[in-house]
Design a protein around this nucleic acid. Structure first.
Length: 696
RNA sequence: GCCCGCUUAGCUCAGUGGUAGAGCACGCGCUUCACACGCGCGGGGCCGAAGGUUCGAGUCCUUCAGCGGGCACCA
């Protein structure tokens, strides 16, 4: 027999996967008893045109270990794959390409043509992630693959929307939203990032009507004063007690604005008097509502000043306007001082443009109501069970306890269009289909809302929609829901995990998953977060090429939920481990004539050699350790047990001690029995290794 | 401001009240018939600091420091 002395991972990787897939090994219908207990996982759907990064590889490895392990234990196991349309992210990529290649914007070619281009892009670049997932060896059931824009999943989205609307959980109306002036769309609070920034704090004086007195307010955004409709002070602040109810003259503009008292104001901060701009600040918006203040919009959707800002400001960029306002105050002798100040600025999570808070008519979901039951679940039953429990259970609970309305609509074209139609009079009809809307309206002349839904709206349904919801009789839904575990990164606990719990509890009356496993973050060797802009990312495919998929998987599995600095040395050591396995097998196979795999443990153990009985004892102990470790998500312990069992016990001791028994040239029943035992131990060890190292 | 995590060998990290561990790196010796991606031997640690509980603390408690994360506020 000719067996190479060095394991060549690529050969195994190339041949095994296509066979597994061809034979349907990953479908729950194959190799499992319909009556067996169920184990199911819905994969976090990667962006359809995305490509694999280390975070995916980590999550995928954990899920594959769990899936393969449970499948081998006889569970009716489903790991369901799919991809996400990734609304804003995909749209921006296609817009960029259109601009670069044809110099056109999406508006130049129109909605229909643009969407055709996005689908074209999806056809062209989609599929890469699936190929990469095959490379990773993932045992997902491709026959059940889903895409968030598939007709069935789109139907689920409409169902979710309509039901919530009918119950009053979804409404349309003006509200304070995060507006991205570059992407020209509203964004939810979870799609923007706060960054601290060095800036200035301007102290502006507002004259009191009919008096020489002036009130000083501090602001980081002087340009918004053009839209001020009040100044607020604390009701407990004695300095301003006599001013409450009096009128101020807003400089430059000349508008008369009241001084109002509100608990929101902290008398200790700044001057204790706050300018109130209800149209351009979330806190001021709320305060304005409490006091019935006017909303004067002075900044538009392009972050430029409106006509209401006054003729000399109209059309100016917000930062140009800022300078000009400050100059004016200086001229008027009303600029008290300017101080250096560090404050935080809100940026678009996608394009980094500075967000403008605006009042805008959008669709909102009353998240606090949908979150009430999930909050009860986590508080009363600790469902779902977070791994690691600290700090994630508390982080999740705190989030659910402080929910506010979710801005659902996006001024984009790629995504699920809002199932709302308007008649000529502007009446709104929310319906599952245009036909239903027409029936409601009693006429055909309807126009659908142009906006699409936040990508996470469809993601929120993922565990149920992929299994067949809203068809509640769907066999998959009945069998595989709730899912066993959700494996994901910590940064989407709010965006995604909490919302899947909301829909699961609302529509199925049950948690979406038993456990939530949060993976660690992988940093570069200097402890820096891997990012495209820093170009310090490590491509999992390069690591696969260099050391093999199995070796990489073992490293990822042992990383698990720990934050780690990536180090090729670890992968190299498991590459060596794979080679050790290869050579142990090589030895066994070179001495396998007369041996029977799988029948090595027949006969009376009392008559075996001492080392045979010892290794079987160690094998069984290792199997128990691996099972306990995998079932408690302690993957590093399973890896440790396997590594030392295989290398120290099996190779260093057992094979060495067996050599004299198995290497005899002449066949004897004793020699063949010994050979059978050796090769059976090997075969059992390979089974234990399989969830981690499926290719070798 | 509130909450959480981490701090153990040169590096990356395990460690579940009972004599400090692994991989890599390092030193010495081995072309030993499965494997030099290997084999054998070896050096290297007041387990972040200070208190406390305990017969006994890397492990439990308190305080502090450094690093990291989340939330709130940021006029």
């Amino acid at each position: 027999m000719d067996i190479p002395k060095t394991y060549e991972p690529k050969k195994a990787e190339e041949s095994h996967y296509s066979r597994w897939e061809r034979e349907g090994c990953f479908a729950p219908e194959v190799n499992s008893d319909p009556a067996a207990p169920v184990y199911s996982i819905a994969i976090p759907p990667p962006n359809v045109t995305g490509s694999l990064h280390m975070g995916h590889a980590l999550q995928h490895t954990i899920m594959d270990v769990l899936t393969r392990y449970h499948r081998m234990r006889g569970f009716r196991t489903l790991w369901l794959p799919g991809t996400d349309h990734a609304g804003i992210s995909t749209q921006i990529m296609v817009e960029r390409k259109l601009k670069k290649e044809e110099g056109k914007s999406r508006h130049d070619i129109g909605r229909e043509e643009f969407l055709r281009r996005v689908w074209e892009w999806k056809e062209q670049y989609g599929g890469e992630i699936q190929r990469q997932m095959r490379r990773e060896g993932l045992s997902v059931d491709w026959s059940r693959e889903q895409f968030t824009m598939d007709e069935h999943l789109s139907r689920a989205v409409r169902e979710f929307f309509v039901r919530c609307y009918d119950e009053g959980l979804i409404y349309r109306g003006p509200g304070m939203i995060n507006w991205c002036p570059k992407d020209q769309t509203a964004l939810s609070d979870l799609e923007v990032d706060k960054e601290s920034q060095a800036g200035k704090l301007y102290y502006l004086q507002y004259p009191v009507k009919g008096s020489e007195r002036r009130v000083t307010v501090a602001t980081t955004r002087p340009e918004t004063m053009l839209g001020d409709t009040a100044v607020a002070v604390s009701p407990k602040d004695e300095r301003y007690a006599d001013l409450i109810g009096q009128t101020l003259i807003l400089p430059i503009v000349g508008r008369e604005i009241p001084v109002v008292a509100d608990e929101f104001v902290d008398p200790e901060f700044g001057t204790g008097a706050v300018k109130v701009t209800p149209a351009h600040d979330p806190n001021d918006y709320a305060l304005g509502k409490r006091h019935g203040l006017a909303q004067v919009t002075v900044i538009d959707q392009h972050a430029r000043m409106t006509a209401e800002a006054g003729a000399e400001f109209e059309g100016l960029d917000r930062y140009e306007a800022r300078e000009k306002v400050v100059e004016k105050f200086e001229e008027l002798g009303l600029l008290e001082k300017v101080a250096d100040y560090e404050f935080s600025i809100t940026k678009c999570g996608r394009c980094r443009a500075v967000i403008e808070p605006l009042i805008s008519t959008q669709w909102f979901l009353k998240q606090a109501e949908l979150g009430r039951e999930p909050l009860r679940f986590i508080r009363e039953k600790h469902e779902p069970h977070f791994v690691p429990e600290n700090p994630y259970e508390k982080v999740y609970e705190n989030w659910l306890a402080g929910l506010y309305d979710w801005t659902l609509s996006r001024q984009l074209w790629w995504g699920h269009r809002i199932p709302a139609w308007y008649d000529a009079a502007g009446h709104v009809y929310v319906a599952r289909t245009v036909e239903d809307a027409r029936a409601q309206a009693g006429g055909d002349e309807l126009e659908q809302d142009p906006d699409v839904l936040d990508t996470w709206f469809s993601s929120a349904l993922w565990p149920i929609s992929t299994l067949g919801w809203p068809d509640e009789e769907s066999p998959d839904l009945k069998t595989f829901y709730p899912t066993s575990v959700l494996v994901t990164a910590r940064d989407i606990i709010f965006l995604w995990v909490s919302r899947m719990m909301m829909t699961g509890v609302k529509f199925m009356g049950e948690k979406a998953f038993d456990d939530v496993y949060i993976t660690g973050t992988i940093f570069d060797r200097h402890g820096q977060r891997m990012s495209k802009t820093k170009a310090n990312g490590i491509d999992p495919l390069d690591v696969f090429d260099k050391f093999g998929v199995d070796a990489t998987r073992v490293v990822l599995a042992s990383i698990g939920s720990t934050d780690t600095r990536w180090n090729d040395n670890q992968v190299e050591s498991y590459r060596n481990f794979a080679n050790k396995i290869w050579n142990a097998a090589r030895f066994c196979l070179l001495n396998s004539e007369g041996a029977q795999v799988g029948r090595g443990f027949e006969g009376e153990p009392e008559r075996w050699a001492l080392h045979d009985r010892w290794i079987v004892s160690r094998l069984h102990k290792t199997a128990r350790e691996v099972a306990a470790a995998v079932e408690s998500y302690q993957f590093h312990e399973a890896v440790y047990a396997l590594y030392h069992f295989f290398w120290d016990d099996f190779c260093d001791w057992y094979i060495e001690l067996s050599k004299s028994d198995v290497t005899a040239a002449d066949p004897t029943p004793e020699r063949d029995a010994a050979r059978s035992r050796v090769i059976t131990v090997l075969e059992q060890a390979l089974r234990l290794l399989h969830p981690f190292m499926p290719f070798i």
